[in-house]
Every structure is written in structure tokens, then in C-alpha cells.
């Protein structure tokens, strides 16, 4: 790809960062064919040693709900389910988690907080290109580590799928290269966190990057982050069927990309990403899936079509007492 494209950088040999990352991940995929028995080895280390064996980060989506399901039914772990609601979670998502923890008889913390709203408002009201989802994921991981430390939980379980290996690397090793594909986005986020929060004392201790989250977590409490989807051979078709049947899981009526279970704020995040960068992190993920042959280009384009309008954006923005049009 040429450097005229956003977020594209060529190395000395003239190969772009997207291709390099893809090749690197492909090698990793070949090397690391994780098996379910590898997961069992990890679980065996931690099972039955503390009050909770693991904490499952629940979003109400298919991946984390199925992760919760597998950890309880397939591995019989003592689980604390943890969900946060920054005020933009959908009712379906919260209902999905409530149903699941009831049916599976799992301890559950729903952390509802308006803490992040002023920060989100600031992003929208300034000309910052910071990506809402990046900031939110930093907050969520920090919170997750906090809760794990509070309850002395050795294992944090997420619903990341095999395709989301970026996230896996981010949480298993401190490696700045994991943002190679999102360099401009992550730089914008870091710039916002470093410069725009000075007049907002409530965010004094807010981590400036995911690396900082990991560094802090290491000092605070040792928790390993894993996802059962890295180890299990079941694809979304199989586990969605299971959680629909066993847990009454429901997909939200509207979410971007089509078929996902993302929060309402994601609509604004997507809109802004396209406005500032011409693409979103979903486009990067989809392009990887196209290269791997998992989906066709046409399917990806269909999935990534903008399926929301200004009315939706404004409805979400109104929760922060701003009119979305004002921030344009």
C-alpha cells in the first residue's frame, strides 16, 4: 500500500506496516496452534486455589457470553462475572449477562458509572481525533485488573476470538508494536490523554495507554488474561447456537458492524474514526479476515456499511447532554 493512505508506513524494503503485521501474525498463527489441552494446563494451575478461579469480563455479546458459558459448564470454574456500564450499554447486552449469570448461577458485579462521560464529552467537543473505543478499552482493562486485585482473582477471562490476536498480545506481553496497524489512532488517543485532561482532575490517575495499564497491573496483582476462544475449535456459528439455546442470548436490534454486540457509544466512535481517518479498527480486522480467506471483500463491505443515522448518533450524544451536531 502507498504511504499516501492514512496510517500506512513503508519500511526500508518498501513493505507497508499492514503487510508486515499480517505476515508476523500469520507466522504466529502457524507457530501457536493452541489446543484445548493447553487451556486445561493453565486452568489446572489456578483452579480451586482462591475464592474465585477466574473473573469473566462480560459485555453481553456472543463472544464473552460464550466464554462465560464454557468456563462454567465445560471447565467447572468458580467464576465472578464482571460487567461495566458506562451509560451506553444496550438493554439487550445487560439482559444477556443477567440471564447468563442467573442460569449459570455465577456471582456477578455490574459496575455502573458515569465517570467516563465527561471524558467522552470532551473528545466530542474538542477537535480531538482520539478514538472512544481505545479510551474505553483502557478504562475497562484497568477496571478489570482492579476488580481482580480486589477479589484476589488469578485469571481474567475475556471473549476475544482468534482473529483478535492483537488484544491477546497486548495483554500477554508489553509490546508497543501491537498498535502498528492503528498508529495514527493510538497516537491521537495518547495525545488526548496526555494533553487534554489537565483541567479534569478526576482523571489524574487515568492510564495514558494500554501499556501503562499492564505495567500498573503487574505491580498490583498477578492476573493472567486469556480467552477460551483461542483454544477451542468452535466457531461463532456453533457457540451462538449454544448460548441462544442454553442462556436465551439475544442479538441487539442495531449494532455496528452488522451482527456485532457493541455498545451505543460505538456508533459515535465509528462515525468519528471514519471522519478523522477514513476507516475504523473494524475495517482493519475485516481486511485481515479477507486476507485469511475467512470472508470475501464483498461480505466485508456489506458488514461494514454504515447502518445508523444522525438520529441514532444524536440519541447517544444526548446522554452526555450535548447535541451531536454541535461537535461536528
Amino acid at each position: 500500500m502507498p504511504e499516501s493512505e492514512p496510517d500506512i508506513f513503508l519500511n526500508k524494503e518498501g513493505i507497508c506496516n499492514i503487510c508486515l503485521t499480517y505476515e508476523h501474525e500469520k507466522q504466529d498463527d502457524n507457530k501457536e496452534k493452541l489446543l484445548e489441552s493447553d487451556l486445561l494446563k493453565i486452568l489446572d494451575k489456578y483452579k480451586g486455589k482462591k475464592k474465585y478461579d477466574c473473573m469473566v469480563m462480560c459485555s453481553g455479546g456472543k463472544d464473552s457470553t460464550s466464554a462465560l458459558y464454557f468456563m462454567k459448564t465445560r471447565y467447572n470454574l468458580n467464576i465472578l462475572a464482571f460487567m461495566f456500564d458506562h451509560g451506553f450499554e444496550t438493554k439487550e447486552a445487560i439482559d444477556n449477562v443477567r440471564n447468563a449469570v442467573d442460569i449459570l448461577d455465577v456471582d456477578f458485579i455490574l459496575y455502573k458509572s458515569s465517570f467516563m462521560k465527561p471524558m467522552f464529552s470532551k473528545i466530542l467537543q474538542t477537535d480531538s481525533k482520539a478514538t472512544l473505543c481505545h479510551i474505553c478499552s483502557i478504562w475497562y482493562m484497568d477496571l478489570a485488573y482492579d476488580v481482580a486485585a480486589r477479589y484476589d482473582i488469578p485469571l481474567i477471562v475475556a471473549g476475544w476470538t482468534k482473529g483478535q490476536s492483537q488484544t491477546k498480545k497486548a495483554n500477554t506481553q508489553s509490546n508497543k508494536n501491537h498498535y502498528t496497524e492503528f498508529l495514527l489512532m493510538s497516537e491521537a488517543t495518547e495525545c488526548f490523554l496526555n494533553n487534554q485532561l489537565k483541567d479534569m482532575p478526576q482523571y489524574k490517575r487515568f492510564p495514558k495507554s494500554m501499556e501503562e495499564v499492564l505495567k500498573r497491573a503487574k505491580k498490583r496483582h498477578k492476573s493472567l488474561v486469556i480467552s477460551p476462544h483461542w483454544f477451542l475449535p468452535y466457531g461463532p456459528e456453533e457457540y451462538v447456537k449454544i448460548i441462544k439455546q442454553e442462556l436465551g442470548w439475544k442479538a441487539p436490534a442495531l449494532s455496528y458492524p452488522k451482527g456485532s454486540t457493541n455498545c451505543l457509544l460505538n456508533f459515535i466512535s465509528v462515525y468519528n474514526s471514519i471522519k478523522h481517518f477514513g476507516y475504523t479498527h473494524y475495517h482493519v480486522e475485516a481486511s485481515k479476515l479477507i486476507r485469511k480467506g475467512v470472508i470475501s471483500r464483498e461480505e466485508a463491505i456489506e458488514q461494514l456499511k454504515q447502518n445508523f443515522d444522525f438520529e441514532t448518533l444524536n440519541k447517544v450524544a444526548s446522554k452526555m447532554n450535548i447535541s451531536f451536531d454541535d461537535s461536528l
Partner: peptide
């Protein structure tokens, strides 16, 4: 180990 993983998953049971 690969064959074991396959067999258990094909049988639709968990390792325990």
C-alpha cells in the same frame, strides 16, 4: 495430544 483434543471434542464431551 492433537488426536486426543480432536477425539474429546468430536465426542462432544469435556475432558473431565
Amino acid at each position: 495430544i492433537n488426536a486426543i483434543n480432536f477425539c474429546v471434542q468430536q465426542a462432544g464431551i469435556s475432558f473431565d
